[in-house]
């Protein structure tokens, strides 16, 4: 039985998505055009993951086995809609930047995966920590990928917030490939390779 602390920390290395747990690739590719977007997506995902993990764990003894997936989907979708409404009301620029990938959090396999593999079996506290850890690990990965793509593809950091930093000055020719789709795939693929080397 893993200690309570381990439920939280495993998300940062041992089971960090999307590298170790190869889940949630779509969002990881789509919203990492900049660091700020990646971070925003990460926070949205943490919120949904922690909340749905808590509720599902609380109801784990009530939900009949046969309809469990339908129940999970309703619960997850509810929190996703909450995120949708809140970002739209309070951080509209992020809502625009993330576009359809906010509703698509529903089908992010990380969340349903954690619900099925973890929250439906473990206590509320453990489930919450598990959600927080995995979510934070995913956020870390998104921020890292976002920063990498933004630095190379635009030559800036924190674009989309008021603290934009221009890193290389006006003579820098942005490596636009990195913010386009091919850059996203290649970048994630290479990072995965590097993770594999480090992990061995």
């Amino acid at each position: 039985m893993a200690s309570i602390a381990q439920e939280f920390t495993k998300g940062f290395w041992k089971e960090i998505p999307p590298f170790r747990l190869v889940l949630g690739i779509c969002a990881a590719l789509a919203v990492t055009k900049s660091l700020v977007d990646g971070f925003g997506m990460g926070i949205a995902l943490i919120f949904v993951l922690v909340c749905s993990n808590i509720i599902i764990s609380m109801l784990r003894k009530v939900i009949p086995k046969k309809v469990r997936l339908a129940c999970y989907i309703v619960i997850i979708a509810t929190f996703v809609v909450i995120v949708e409404l809140i970002t739209q009301a309070y951080v509209y620029s992020l809502y625009e930047a993330l576009g359809i990938f906010i509703p698509l959090i529903v089908v992010n396999c990380i969340i349903l995966g954690r619900a099925e593999a973890f929250a439906s079996k473990k206590s509320v506290l453990r489930s919450a920590l598990d959600g927080l850890g995995i979510g934070a690990g995913y956020t870390l990965a998104l921020v890292f990928l976002g920063a990498l793509r933004e630095i190379l593809g635009r030559g800036t950091l924190f674009a989309g917030s008021q603290y934009v930093i221009n890193l290389f000055g006006p003579s820098f020719k942005p490596y636009a490939f990195m913010v386009e789709a091919p850059g996203a795939f290649v970048c994630l693929g290479l990072l995965l390779g590097i993770m594999n080397v480090l992990g061995d």
């Binding site: 109801l59 939900i63 009949p64 309809v67 129940c71 309703v74 619960i75 509810t78 809609v81």
Partner: peptide, 18 residues
Amino acid sequence: IKMIVVLSTISAVCGFGL
């Protein structure tokens, strides 16, 4: 009956919350 009750209760609570 339990299946239907649980599923509809969850849906109703979520619907009202939203």
